[in-house]
Write a protein that binds this DNA or RNA. Structure first.
Ligand SMILES: [Mn+2]
Ligand SMILES: [Mn+2]
Length: 347
DNA sequence: GACGGAA
DNA sequence: TTCCGTCAACGCTGT
DNA sequence: ACAGCG
């Protein structure tokens, strides 16, 4: 049995259980009225900014029967948890105007006319090319969350760096992607191995469900870390674990060459311009999953307890968050480790 | 989904 | 007013 | 140059 690190948590939720805001409740009431009336309308956000919303009845997730209105409501109610993870970060939009089963498309360039308080910054698509870049939406305000829902953007997909230091990642992530025949217990197993290694290196790390079928492990970086350094750190970790457990994990890039029942440890997201769904973000998965922070105890005990990603949804998440608080806050409060520790693996 | 131009 | 067409990403890697 | 990848 793994020795327990730190206290057995039970005492106080790691943060604001009380991230409840009367202004948000009022907005949700207004939204309900618009839905009942079957009209489009305008939400007036704190600060007086007006954001038009419409097509609230349109079904975006057929299986649970959730609508575009449910997405707007989700972003409103989750905003206190969602915003810290997107603040100052360029956001890649993937739009689903006809729900998760309709045709979707990516969009980087922000529209010309935006509601007040929706931030935009010129960002280069590649760091070493002399372009002026394109106007990206920058996360951080409630207006942006509501506006993006109106554009039928389902998930919040932030960069790993923040303006204005856009070439320096402040976080890296290991993206655990199960192949079609991979049982989720195996994903948990691989996550556990990665956690054990990271703990040996003294590196803080926090797991979450992806909101689809996999897991993400995020690691805070020391200030000023270039993308390349974070990428190599993750490459080393992923490669060490994959070569130690070839029947369970791989870093093989080509889908055809991956066994159908292993976990692809995708470390290649840690590149300038790439993204991963933010913590507490809704996802375009059939079951309306939410990318949900977990404790390492939940990951380690997941087989016994029957942990399943499908249990963390737009409908279920609020109850959980009220109980466990903001598990993702640790990512911002813990001291990043020296990445050079990982280089002793190199052989 | 937003927008501009045609019907 | 309604209808309709058009537009909405990208860079890295391997072959 | 082009296909595969996320
Ligand atoms: Mn993934
Ligand atoms: Mn991936």
């Amino acid at each position: 049995r793994r020795p327990r690190v730190g206290k057995t948590h039970a005492a106080a939720p790691s943060a604001p259980t009380a991230k409840t805001d009367p202004a948000i409740d009022t907005l949700c009431d207004t939204l309900r009225e618009m839905e009942a009336r079957g009209t489009r309308g305008t939400l007036t956000l704190p600060g007086g900014v007006r954001v038009p919303v419409g097509n609230l009845h349109k079904v975006f997730w057929p299986a649970p029967g959730l609508t575009k209105g449910d997405l707007v409501r989700f972003n409103l109610r989750m905003s206190a948890y969602l915003l810290p993870g997107v603040t100052d970060r360029p956001l890649v939009m993937k739009r689903f105007p006809n729900g998760i089963d309709g045709k979707s498309f990516y969009q980087h360039r922000a529209p010309d006319q935006l509601p007040d308080g929706v931030r935009v910054a010129m960002v280069r698509e590649s760091p070493d090319r002399p372009t002026t870049g394109v106007p990206y939406l920058i996360g951080g305000t409630l207006q942006t969350l509501v506006y993006m829902a109106q554009l039928a953007v389902i998930s919040q997909d932030p960069w790993f760096s923040r303006v204005p230091h856009i070439e320096q990642a402040d976080i890296v992530a290991l993206d655990l992607d199960p192949m079609p025949d991979t049982p989720f217990t195996r994903v948990l197993e691989v996550a556990r191995w990665l956690h054990d290694e990271l703990e040996r290196l003294g590196t803080p790390c926090v797991p979450k469900t992806s909101g689809s079928s996999g897991l993400h492990i995020h690691i805070p970086l020391p200030p000023g870390t270039p993308y390349d350094a974070g990428l190599i750190f993750c490459q080393i970790l992923a490669t060490v674990v994959a070569s130690r457990h070839p029947k369970a994990a791989t870093v093989e890039r080509m889908v055809k060459k991956r066994p159908p029942d292993v976990v692809y440890i995708d470390y290649l997201q840690n590149i300038y311009g790439k993204t991963l769904a933010a913590a507490y973000s809704a996802r375009a998965s059939t079951f309306a999953g939410v990318s949900t922070p977990l404790t390492w105890d939940e990951v380690h005990d997941g087989l016994k307890s029957g942990l399943a990603p499908q249990d963390f949804t737009m409908q279920s998440i609020f109850k959980r968050v009220r109980v466990v608080g903001d598990l993702w806050a640790r990512l911002r409060t813990s001291t990043p480790a020296d990445l050079r520790a990982a280089f002793r693996y190199v052989d």
